[in-house]
Design a protein around this nucleic acid. Structure first.
Length: 590
RNA sequence: CGGGGCGUAGCGCAGUCUGGCCAGCGCGUCUGGCUUGGGACCAGAAGGUCGCGAGUUCGAAUCUCGCCGCCCCGACCA
């Protein structure tokens, strides 16, 4: 096992009677997902406040093993481990612009001298400060530093145990380069390292998908998604697996209905202010209508959006188009002030040179849509974007994809229907470029003697979330079924009737011998009923179980069972140690 | 931030509408006995500012007002 500079998994052995963290029979009512239930019931973690958890010995051991694997893989791609502060001066965040840009999830406070401080939710600012101090020459690049450190995000809604928390441990890495090509090549190496990490920790189904880079910024980014029904993210995947994307940025290749333009015609649609009502009234489908949506951007300016009636606006895409971190629906008064009639608004009557207008291709390319007449109780039939707007109008309008993809929409690559999955975001990687280095003066002197901003990448993994995701993908009705690589122990010994001298002697002997053989052993040395002990063993979920009882010892044997499998077998006492050692080695080698 | 729900022993809950009886039940914990292959049984015990604070009342877990915390859905989310 690798050396663990900061965390260690503690002793290789543990007696259940002494283990801190009771198993509990009934899960707290608020625990609803498998990982939340089993982490609490199995004595892996305990809540301290909303979204803030103590890791108990079992949970800490699992998390430490995940961290050890992460360290190995980060070191393998030439990462250098460091540790940066969680408490940081606000002025550092003002430099990057995020003190203002980030919302309330950044916890702000003042120290005793009334100096504004923050609890770091990520460490781009801190690492930039480090880089501009320590890295000054192209000869030092490229390089990557990473840390396993606490992050704090004042989440609006923590949920599902360790899946979405406020305080958590994250591996975050940052790389520095002198060229985009170098960053891209390194990004690929990290991508591969991530795939190895999630495979090694025992994730069954973890995919990397294209993602929206959100508040971190940057051009190219991927999210590693553990596929699980309880996941918070919606993912679209093509049947051939070539296209995988988060709903926030997923695109499709929709077919637009085109036909010979029909004349514009005003039709009465009394009271029909919704797409559904208009379609019903006129006997058409929502796809034959055009929808008008009004937003207010971060500066408070009105934005007019048009899209085909059956398609939802994707606000992530729209935010990106508008370069506006916040968007809210405009109210009726604001819509009226722009000269539009709510419920019957139309591009036909809006001055696109005066109001920001964004149009989805589904609206611009479809023929003969029914759109608002910009007059209460009337719509227009036969709207055709090219024909019915002046060139000046069209020149002022942004036509770009702002559509929300739906399950079954055609894949942009193959045209096959896209499949919808739910995922837990366990890791993400970004090509940041110079977003932070330019803002914060992170420069190096190049060969030509000129100062240039470093080109950066950043790479995160949520440790606790990964632990939870592994349980979501590896459990049965009794508890978790840990992959050997991150199991809290390798072997769980149940000593039935421990007061029997022969049982005690044999159990203590095996406990000692297995430990000497390099295995991590949990010994249930309590004087409990067999069923009680078996249920606790299942709830803890250690991969290998050994049972010793007067019955097995009478034959000079111990019973062996693999967690998650029904078969049991009997082992001669003499072969237990080599057999289990081989089992563990084989499982770890997978 | 919007909608809904909840707060009584470590966990799960009853009691609250309709104020008054010793604040109860199951699990867990402790002691003793008995039992020992899939969550046994018997006897005894510890454990509570009934979320907090005001108020009404002779009397409040219960009624009133304010506050706090927690969960779910939505919004939001490196």
């Amino acid at each position: 096992m690798a050396v663990r500079p900061r965390h260690c998994t503690g002793s290789a052995t543990m007696r259940l009677a002494q283990l801190v963290g009771q198993r509990i029979k009934e899960a707290p009512r608020d625990a609803q997902t498998a990982s939340h239930i089993y982490l609490l019931r199995g004595g892996y973690c305990r809540p301290l406040s909303t979204g803030i958890y103590t890791l108990l010995p079992l949970g800490f051991r699992v998390a430490s093993k995940v961290e050890a694997i992460i360290r190995e893989e980060m070191n393998r791609v030439d990462g250098q481990e460091i540790l940066m502060p969680v408490v940081q001066p606000a002025e550092l965040w003002e430099e990057s612009g995020r003190y203002q840009a980030v919302g309330q999830e950044l916890l702000r406070f003042r120290d005793r001298n009334d100096k504004p401080m923050v609890l770091a939710m990520t460490h781009e600012e801190a690492v930039c400060h480090l880089a501009r101090t320590e890295l000054s020459s192209y000869k030092q690049l490229p390089c990557m530093v990473y840390q396993l450190q606490t992050k704090y995000r004042d989440e609006a809604r923590p949920r599902a145990g360790l899946i979405r928390v406020r305080e958590f441990t994250m591996k975050d890495g940052y790389s520095f380069h002198t060229s985009e090509a170098c960053l891209q090549a390194y990004y690929e190496r990290v991508h591969e390292a991530y795939a190895r990490i999630f495979r090694r920790v025992g994730m069954r189904d973890c995919i990397s998908i294209e993602s929206d880079s959100g508040m971190i910024g940057g051009a190219v980014s991927h999210e590693f998604m553990a596929v699980a029904d309880c996941g918070e993210d919606t993912i679209f995947v093509s049947p051939d697996g070539r296209y995988k994307a988060n709903r926030e940025c997923a695109i499709s290749r929709p077919a637009y209905v085109t036909a010979a333009p029909e004349p514009l015609e005003k039709v009465a649609t009394p009271g029909a202010t919704s797409i559904e009502a208009v379609a019903t009234l006129l006997g058409i489908t929502p796809a034959q209508t055009g929808k008008a949506v009004f937003y207010r951007d971060a500066q408070g300016a009105l934005v007019f959006v048009c899209i085909r009636g059956d398609i939802e606006v994707n606000e992530s895409k729209l935010r990106k188009v508008l370069q506006s971190p916040q968007l809210t629906f405009a109210n009726d008064a604001e819509i009226q002030a722009a000269g539009a009639v709510a419920g019957y608004a139309s591009l036909l009557a809006i001055d696109a040179t005066a109001v920001r207008v964004v149009v989805d291709p589904s609206f611009a390319a479809s023929s003969n849509l029914v759109v608002g007449a910009n007059e209460a109780d009337f719509h227009m039939k036969g709207f055709n974007y090219e024909r019915d707007l002046t060139a000046a109008q069209r020149a002022a309008i942004t036509v770009t994809d702002i559509a929300t993809v739906r399950e079954g929409d055609p894949c942009p690559l193959s045209g096959e229907p896209l499949r919808l999955l739910r995922g837990i975001e366990v890791g993400n990687i970004f090509q940041l470029g110079t977003k932070y280095s330019a803002a914060m003066g992170v420069n190096y002197l190049d060969q030509d003697g000129k100062a240039k901003p470093m080109i950066m990448g950043c790479y995160g993994i949520g440790v606790g979330r990964t632990v939870a995701a592994v349980i979501e993908q590896n459990h049965d009705d009794y508890g978790p079924i840990w992959p050997m690589a991150i199991a809290p122990f390798h072997v769980h010994i149940c000593a039935l009737n421990i007061r029997d001298e022969a049982v005690r002697t044999a159990a203590e002997g095996l406990y000692r011998d297995l430990q000497a053989a390099g295995l991590e052993v949990l010994l249930d040395d309590r004087s409990e009923k067999a069923g009680f002990m078996f249920n606790d063993a299942d709830l803890i979920g250690v991969p290998l179980r050994l049972v010793l009882s007067p019955k097995t010892l009478a034959e000079g044997k111990a019973e062996f069972k693999i967690r998650g499998q029904a078969e049991k077998s009997m082992l001669d006492l003499a072969e237990v140690v080599p057999f289990l050692k081989a089992q563990v080695a084989a499982a770890l080698a997978e």
